[in-house]
Design a protein around this nucleic acid. Sequence first.
DNA 1: CAGGAAACTTGATCTGGATCAAGGATCGTC
DNA 2: GACGATCCTTGATCCAGATCAAGTTTCCTG
Lengths: 248, 248
Amino acid sequence: MNRKRFDSTSLRGGPAIRAVDPWTVGNPRSGEAHQLLTDDERARLAVFASLVRFKKGQMIYRGGDPVDAVYNVVSGVVKAFNGRDHISAFLFAGDLVGLSEEGHYVNSARAVTPLTAYRLPIARLQHLLRHDAQLEFHVICKLCQELRQTQRHAFLVSTRDAAARIAMFLQLLEQLQANRQEPVNEIHVPMNRSDIAQYVGLSPAAVSRTFAKLVGDGIIEERDRHHIKVKDRARFDRLSAHVSGASS
Amino acid sequence: MNRKRFDSTSLRGGPAIRAVDPWTVGNPRSGEAHQLLTDDERARLAVFASLVRFKKGQMIYRGGDPVDAVYNVVSGVVKAFNGRDHISAFLFAGDLVGLSEEGHYVNSARAVTPLTAYRLPIARLQHLLRHDAQLEFHVICKLCQELRQTQRHAFLVSTRDAAARIAMFLQLLEQLQANRQEPVNEIHVPMNRSDIAQYVGLSPAAVSRTFAKLVGDGIIEERDRHHIKVKDRARFDRLSAHVSGASS
DNA sequence: CAGGAAACTTGATCTGGATCAAGGATCGTC
DNA sequence: GACGATCCTTGATCCAGATCAAGTTTCCTG
């Protein structure tokens, strides 16, 4: 099942940024994220990038701390969260972590699974960015992707129906999984129920009940808490479409 | 009251991008957004930018349409929304509108007030971006800002307490107003109650009730539906802090 | 492998906002 | 300034999910 723990191409080549291009239309396989950086760009980043590892649950940085680096996830999952009880994003291989404002991280980040990432000191990164238009263009593409993602999150959270939220959440995971070119016959859910609750804006109890309901209705199937299979795709998709009101 | 309908510096100089810098720490007035572009950059954009006007309520583009331009707001307010009943962002002077994915707009945009904006055809814009590292760097700063904003929106929408949502929303407007260096003794609310409802994720009825409650509690005061004053700052701020759970 | 802690599930009750509906204010237009 | 259309407010009812709590499973560590 876990034949390759790391995407070897990512490890060998240096930092990697995956995203769906905002402007290029009709690529080979539509909707699929690809590696944005050229080998050359990755090499230039690799010069000052250091590969770092975090244990499951380990803090990567705290909101409010002065920014010293941006992280590029190689393998594993990160959660970015606001002090209290809200997760603003889960970050996967090919993502950039470390959003800041006026020199300080705007939220905290913690490893959800064992994590490998490139650490990019911002001073060096900024310098490189200011002189490399091509690289910057790719960073812009990535930021657009994260912006779209965050907008979808806000949309997900704005619906009142718990089943719709969970369905949208699972769809999100599924899509990211497809982007990473992993098999999608089963959805891998690396985070625990509490984290899901904090991401979708429900209580842990409600998340649990909703999963139970989806299983009971024959819409999904749970191999274990971290592996879910969609049994009735039509109804599954309808859940997320039927959000509060008429379908236009 | 409306001495200057347009920010003349913006009109004269060409497109303008306002944002809080993600990395530079401790600027003159902290927390204040400034013009990111140099006169030179604005001039280069102005070469192919055209100033366009939209009437209140007019559609700017539809989600799913092929992207042909990005818009830079000069004056007025835009809402970006998903087909149904959800507004993902309000955009003001200095903002960029026209997020896309694989060559198509991801959401629709409509003028909330009479609007003036620069229209930047993407082909030309992309070309310029790919060759101008400095300009790109500024676009990256702007995207980081929009990303933070959208994360805050997701956070706002994830709370269950209606009063907290409205308070956070008003704080947002107030902060943006300060960023634009307009007086902040009063909060200007350019959009109608329905739009607020669709942004904060409540029913119009609940928005109405919540405003009534805040006024009744002496926390805010309504000069009219579009001009609000905070009367009890302490309780106002506590509303948005006291979001579901203990204060750490 | 055993023990304890953390995470998860499930039940019962309660509440805040959705919804439906009707009346009132405001805006834009002629 | 009068008209119609839209937007806004307010009331009454209802329900989905929060909360509290107890029992169960899973995970981690020694």
